[in-house]
Structures are given as C-alpha cells and as structure tokens.
Design a protein around this nucleic acid. Structure first.
Lengths: 183, 183
DNA sequence: TTGGAATGTCAACAACACTGACGTATTGTT
DNA sequence: AACAATACGTCAGTGTTGTTGACATTCCAA
C-alpha cells in the first residue's frame, strides 16, 4: 500500500458505499476504484483480442486497421459520403483520403460523384471489396460469437448496455443510426 | 439486399436458431450475425470513448497512448521488468524502449538494476509519474464509473464476462495476474 | 457575379509500430 | 575457463496512421 490517492474521487473497497438498495444490499460495491480498474484492464486486453484476427488478415496485404474500418462502414452504408465517413471514424479527411485512395486504386472501393451535390463523393464497395469485408468481419464475428456463447445472453445484454453508456454522445448517434439498418 | 453472403458461418436473423433452452425460448437469438455486428460496432465506438479522456490529457504533453499504457502497468506492478512489460503490452522492445526512454528522461519513471539478476531492470514510477498516472486513470475511471452506474451491477457483471471471453488466452493470464493484486 | 463555405485532393511531416542487426553485461552450463 | 543463452539497449530502415498546410472544385447566398 505505497500509493497515496491524492485525487481520490472514487471509493476504496474497504470504504465503499454499501447501500441497501433494490438489489438487496451492497448495491454500489461495483463502483469501487478496484472494480473500475478491472473494467479498464478488461477493456484493454479484450480490445487486443477483438482486433487480433482481422489484423492478421490485413497484414497479409499492405493494409491496416484504418482500411478495415473504412471498408466496414462503407459496407454498412453503401453510397456514404467522405464527410459522413469522416465523422464516424473521427479522423482527419487527409488521413481517410490516403486510405480511400489505396482502396480505390486496388479496386476495392469505387467513388462516384454525387448526383445532387457534385462536391460529394458516394462510396461503394466493389465485389472484391465486399469479399474482403466478409473475410474480415467473419474473422471478427467468430471471436465475438465464441465470447457471446461462453458468456450467455444475459451477459451479452449487460455487455452492450455498458458499452453504449461508455460512448461519447456525438458518436452514440452514429452507433444508433447503424443499429437498425436492414442489410 | 445486394450482398451475397459468400462465407456465411453465422446465422441471419430470419433463420436463426430458436432453441427452447433454459432461458425460455429464443435462447440463441443473441448469436445472429446482426447481433454480433452490433456488438462489434459497440466495441468500436465504446473504445473511442474509453480512450478519449486520457488522450486529451496526453496530448497536452508530447505523449501518446503508448506512454499511458506503460505508466499504467508500471504503476500496477512496481518493480516490473522490461521483459514482463513487453509481454503485457505486446509490442517490440524497440517500440517500448522509445517510450521508456522519454519517460525516464522526463523523470516519470526510474529504472533500477535488478538485485538478484543484474541483467534485469526494475521499473518504478516517480512521484511525478504517479501523479500523471492518477490524473490519467481518474479521467478514465470517471467515464467508466458513469457507464457502470448507468448500466447497473448486473450489466457490469455481463460486461466483464464477455470481455474476458474475448481475450486471447496468452493475454488472459496477464489480466488474471493483475486482477487480484493488492495495491 | 462574386465571395464565402463546404467537399475533397495533394504534399510534407511526426508519432509509433515493425524488422533486422549488433553490442554489452550477466547468467547458467558444460 | 569457455561457451551459449538471456536481458536490455541501440542504430538503421520501413510502413501505417495520424497531423497541418495549401489548393482545386462546387455550391449557395448576398
């Protein structure tokens, strides 16, 4: 016990709230700093696993995670504009543009000039792009499926609840838009 | 419905298993490709939120996420060796070394020659290093706490279950080791 | 029609990961 | 004592991904 908690907004395990809430006692024990830290480290290690399989596939080609993200969201939203993709991915347009350029050059994505607004570019996956997208998301889904199966449906519901509460508000609406779209 | 599911290992919603399991029907509905995709996108957006607050702090200094990770795990395991840190973080020693060099130069981390094995270097946070670590994890904990509170204790349990099932086996043991350490 | 805003592209640069090779000190083994 | 293996640090080179700055095109509104 060498660290002194100079900025202790949270609670230590020993001094945690133990309210007699509707959960039947110890209702707030899950909010101790220790519990939060475990959650943080779980996020860290799990995200590594989450990206590991697609990363291996991408490494075969000259691609990285940025390509995966672009291909994923173009696949989800065929005809999306560069600007929309930009706000989803949260990078600069120059950074996205480099990725799009290679994807277009390699024939995985097509860029069509917008019909109503000719400044815009509508992005679509080609057949080859769809094939790559499938391969990547299959790999990622396989792991996700195994995790879901191991944890069970109730755990999955909780998993999604916490993740949704963890998002930034500006990103949350992108997630919601994505959520209920027919494929 | 333009995409053809060439590599469909999973299930479409319409054709999903609906087993009469112990959950009272529709037990496997949470394993549809659509549910899995939502989980994948939730992970993506949530991780952005997860790192957003520390990233802002790190940007003030000349630091990045790599510094955060190093400081975090050195703080969790005072006296840890370079090799151990390496296997936790999953990067090359050249990459870690660049980060450690700046942290040591800036007086946030000290490196002591190992007592039993003089080849090893034991890493510790200085007072300044602990202060930064506190600042970063406070920011991250605040968001995690808000998410936990919003989702409730049962959701948190499910959250952790799914994340743990999502980890690579080799990383899982690092998570477990971290888990039950007294601070 | 002219100026400003929006959209997207090109160029240069920094951060951070990687590989490969090498040097040094220490440890363990033969 | 000689040798191999380990732990750590470093130099050089490369690639992805992010950044800022400058610029062309298109749209819209004064």
């Amino acid at each position: 016990m060498s660290t002194t908690l100079t900025y202790c907004y949270g609670k230590r395990e020993e001094e945690a709230d133990v309210a007699e809430g509707p959960e039947g006692g110890q209702a707030l024990l899950f909010l101790t700093d220790d519990q939060l830290r475990k959650g943080i480290e779980a996020m860290f290690f799990a995200y590594r696993g989450f990206t590991a399989d697609p990363d291996r596939i991408l490494a075969e080609m000259a691609y990285g995670r940025a390509h995966h993200r672009a291909v994923h969201f173009i696949g989800r939203r065929p005809g999306t504009t560069v600007n929309n993709l930009l706000s989803i991915l949260g990078v600069t347009k120059q950074s996205l543009n480099r990725v799009l350029r290679t994807l277009i050059k390699d024939g995985l994505v097509t860029s069509e000039i917008g019909r109503s607004d000719k400044r815009e570019r509508n992005l679509y996956l080609t057949d080859a792009g769809r094939a790559l997208e499938q391969r990547l998301s299959d790999a990622q889904r396989d792991r996700m499926r195994a995790a879901y199966r191991a944890a069970g449906p109730e755990a999955v519901a909780g998993f999604r609840q916490v993740l949704e509460a963890m998002m930034d508000e500006d990103l949350h609406h992108h997630y919601r838009e994505m959520k209920d779209v027919k494929v």
